[in-house]
């Protein structure tokens, strides 16, 4: 009963926060709600026995990406945003599409039953510790994608600098 209660809380909080994120008029508020949302998600990860991912969620998402968002929002002086329409005029179309996607996904997962069982049971992960188990997988089976990920990050850094840099006036 208790896990279901917890899940109920998380589900409610995540959905409510998500709605808040996309409906706020002021982007700063959106970012703040999103911060809260990410903490909720991270907490849920803990219940799913994924401490490392929860940590990443907090450090990278909440700590880095959102701060970046916040910077940009503050950097761009969006005063008139507070007066303008939040949604496009054809927002019901978006609603229909989103609803259709939700219905479609729901119909696919509603009767889903897991029928596969891997080697990383909760006991194994607890014995090995989660971070170590994940690290081992990353540096062996996924070494190549891991390296590519590092390259993507490098390119992103350079790209961000090049794009955001003020052009010299000639």
């Amino acid at each position: 009963m208790l896990p279901k209660l917890f899940f109920g809380w998380f589900a409610f909080a995540i959905i409510a926060l998500s709605v808040l994120v996309i409906t706020r008029r002021n982007p700063v508020h959106s970012v703040m709600w999103m911060l809260l949302l990410f903490f909720q998600i991270a907490s849920m990860y803990l219940f799913l026995n994924a401490e490392f991912i929860a940590a990443i969620q907090v450090i990278v998402y909440a700590g880095a990406i959102l701060v970046l968002f916040l910077f940009v929002v503050l950097l761009l002086n969006l005063r008139e945003e507070l007066l303008a329409n939040r949604f496009i005029n054809a927002w019901p179309v978006g609603l229909v599409f989103a609803g259709a996607i939700f219905a479609g996904t729901l119909s696919a997962v509603v009767a889903f039953v897991p029928n596969f069982s891997g080697q990383y049971t909760v006991d194994v992960i607890n014995r090995e510790t989660h971070t170590k188990a994940l690290g081992q997988l990353l540096y062996t089976d996924f070494l190549f994608p891991f390296e590519i990920a590092s390259l993507i990050l490098l390119i992103a850094i350079i790209g961000a600098i090049v794009l955001a840099k003020k052009r010299m006036r000639s």
Partner: peptide, 29 residues
Amino acid sequence: NWYLMLSAAVFSIGVFGFLTRRNIIIMFM
């Protein structure tokens, strides 16, 4: 499936936000 349904719900909210918001930062979020 509860988790999956939650995931579907959040995803659809994201889709809705992306399709309807005018502010590019919110779309990005």
